[in-house]
Amino acid sequence: MADEEMNAKGEGLKVKIGEWLPLAQWEEGPEWTTLLVEPASWPEAAKLLRFTPGLDFDFLFCLTCIDWKTHFTMVYHFRSTLHGHELVVKSKLDHNQPAIETVSRIWRTAEFHEREAYDLFGVNFLHHPDLRRLFLTDEWVGYPLRKDYEDPVNMIKL
């Protein structure tokens, strides 16, 4: 897709989402239209993105977390299979007690993805139906993908 076409699509999206979320914050990125939300307003925003006609973000294809040492950032990648447009949503979480509402009831793929983020980052997804470790054993101490994680036995440093 040509860059201009992408930009036009992105601007159109911003206007549309702005109608529903007047306080929407945007991040300037080279590729994606990126919406910034507060964890507290995420459940409301998620429903809007999924069910508003014209937005219809029905496909959550990537959900992940980034440890910035001072805070965590949750990143959600959405696409609409109806309209073909894409959107990234980011939410900044507190580093001491990272917590955000689950979206696994809206996009069911989130159940596994959120369990992965819980397992490897220790993000607490509120009201998640089954928040347990996914890859590591239940007794595992710590969250390996955090930047301050140390494991003298299993980790090899280059």
């Binding site: 990537c62 980034i66 990648h77």
Partner: peptide, 29 residues
């Protein structure tokens, strides 16, 4: 299916964070 590579770079020689969106993971769910 769709395999996604998500690189977050801080400008160094190594990625700051990298995420692989693997198709099998979502299909299994």
């Amino acid at each position: 299916g769709e395999f996604g590579v998500y690189i977050i770079s801080e400008g160094g020689m190594t990625p700051y964070r990298i995420k692989f969106r693997s198709p099998g993971f979502s299909n299994l769910s």
